[in-house]
Design a protein around this nucleic acid. Structure first.
Lengths: 358, 358
DNA sequence: CTGAAAGCGCTTACAG
DNA sequence: CTGAAAGCGCTTACAG
């Protein structure tokens, strides 16, 4: 308009500089917090920027600073509401730190190696892997490149990556205590993904908890954290001649499906005929139709920890694996028969803590 | 190692060029599909790249091509499982086109203006807004800047943005037909967000459908697409002296909550005492505990359409608003009393099409 | 097919 | 506080 030149594409700092009658450096400094710029110059720049509709180009800034302010979030699937909840909180927390989320989702593979190339090309400042993990090679590569990686709801001792989990082993052990105290006799476990640490810890915690009460028998079926596979597992377990009277399902997402099978296909009453407990304390487990006794995972605290680890390592440049292990609470609802004692009410929720005072 | 220089940061094309004994241009061409490069040179470059662990810097490429290959996806909240489902499919489809998702979520505002600045700074190639909209000013700005915007599950005639929706008006009209044919007499509607086109279309379709059967009375309560507000709305409606015998809840996410209130707080049997229908055909509506009669939104087709619009407009550079309106199906389940006739079974699902042959 | 060079839009020493 | 200049890592005419 004013130079008679039709602008193509977005406004640049040079155009703003020309309009404001200052150097391009001055424009840059105006938009760099903490840079040395006089109020007068700043005001001129701001006026010109507003007039032209200028917005700094984050891509160009990334190139020169070698900081993209982008965090890659890898979540293979969002079917389990736990993950959307995490994602939403992650979006909030990262936005507060002025970071942005490059999301990788909708692929069926077990690990995240296939998307790794993509995410590295964007020179992300950090990586959060939820419900998925990374091969050791790639973990090493990230460490070498100075890119912090945080596993969320998974952990590993092997690799050079950090992790945030909750006390799955302890939580599952407490569920065993709870069910035994409730007088249950025959136990089953519907597992998640065999190779996930979360599943392993919940399984081992439950098994060890039962053992500590002298119970060695435990029927196990595989659910792979999938609704339909959990249904199949439930059918197998409930068709057996000696039906269990308590099933621990490795997460609530599957537990909901198992309850539906028990009620609508086998006509069982819960918890009279069968007790079901889950893990996560995710949405549907709080709905009256399910009202599942479960162990909570503290999403907000976990997200906080993940973001803090990322920020610390980005700031310091030191990539030291940190393993954050946060406590959950056994939340007592109506999907399992209750013990006579040991229940407490805290903030309107009924919780159960093991007899050992933990 | 080989030059005695410790590399800092990721490998660059110049380093690869040196190693391969070619120009930096040759390296670039090797990684640019369709660029003119001899097989021999290409092989040398590829070998050197592999050795050094080179990955092209997408940020630098974006700067020079002014194409970021990033699509901003704005989803204010993910609580309603419909949106995670959409997000997952969107991730899949965009990845197939070699685009990436910059996700904006976890903010409570009604429109997306607050995140707009952020997303424009990253010079995204396109914007998808789901469950949220944009002010006219910003819509205009995008159009002027040549950035395609697609509203997903919202529409507008006003602004220079495209939209993908399903036939909400027609779907809701059919629900009215269905309920009337099922012999219901007193109707209520629990609404979504007042200012959303989706809510408006579903409301008007339902109201007009009832009118065409001579029914003018319709109790309306506001649910704002929120579980807890829907519960409150349900309590109000079900406490009234003349309780309705059919409630249309503006989406399944709320309908689930309404069913729980009806059953567990009011002791009603569904559908004997009360029929409930929803919209979306989202996860829980298919679970046996709810088994909701609803109208499906064809997520895959809708995502396909959204991605296609974006790709077309990015490729052509022409930003012409397109409004895609896709058909849904009334899926008959058990949450509402059924009419004696008009039901068909297609691919194992029972569906209902209005008497007018549509 | 290939290389040298310009340039994308910024940040940041450097010298005033 | 300010501006001129170098440079981030690429792509892409241009000339051979």
């Amino acid at each position: 308009m004013d130079g008679g030149v039709t602008r193509k594409g977005p406004v640049t700092s040079s155009q703003v500089a020309r309009r404001a009658g200052v150097s391009q450096s001055a424009v840059s400094r105006t938009f760099t917090p903490g840079a040395s710029i006089s109020p007068a110059t700043r005001a001129k720049v701001l006026a010109a920027a507003k007039e032209l509709g200028y917005r700094p180009n984050a891509i160009a800034r990334s190139l020169i600073t070698s900081r993209s302010r982008i965090i890659a979030v890898v979540m293979a699937y969002l079917e389990n509401l736990f993950y959307p909840d995490v994602l939403e909180e992650l979006g909030r927390r990262l936005a507060a730190e002025d970071y942005h989320v490059l999301l990788f989702t909708g692929f069926k593979d077990r690990d995240s190696d296939p998307v790794f190339d993509q995410l590295m090309q964007y020179r992300v400042d950090g990586i959060i892997l939820a419900s998925t993990s990374l091969s050791s090679d790639l973990s090493e590569e990230c460490a070498a490149a100075g890119i912090p990686v945080v596993l969320f709801n998974r952990t590993t001792e092997r690799d050079a990556v950090s992790s945030v989990t909750s006390e799955n082993r302890e939580g599952a052990r407490r569920l065993a205590d709870f069910l035994v105290a409730g007088g249950h006799k025959r136990f089953a476990f519907i597992s998640g993904l065999q190779n996930s640490s979360t599943n392993r810890d919940r399984y081992e915690g439950f098994r060890d908890g039962l053992k500590s009460h002298g119970i060695e028998d435990l029927t196990v079926q595989t659910g792979n954290f999938s609704r339909s596979e959990a249904e199949t597992a439930a059918r197998t377990i409930l068709s057996a001649p000696e039906r269990p009277d308590a099933i621990f399902v490795a997460n609530d997402h599957m537990a909901v499906a198992v309850m539906d099978v028990a009620r609508y296909e086998f006509g069982l009453s819960i918890p009279q005929d069968l007790s079901i407990v889950g893990y996560d304390d995710v949405g549907p487990s709080r709905w009256p139709s399910y009202d599942i006794t479960t162990v909570s995972q503290p999403i907000d605290t976990m997200v906080d920890a993940a973001v803090r680890i990322l920020m610390d390592q980005i700031t310091s440049g030191l990539i030291e694996p940190v393993h954050e292990l946060l406590p959950g609470e056994l939340i007592v609802r109506s999907s399992a028969r209750k013990p006579r004692s040991g229940l407490e009410t805290v903030n309107g929720r009924t919780i159960y803590r093991s007899g050992d005072g933990l």
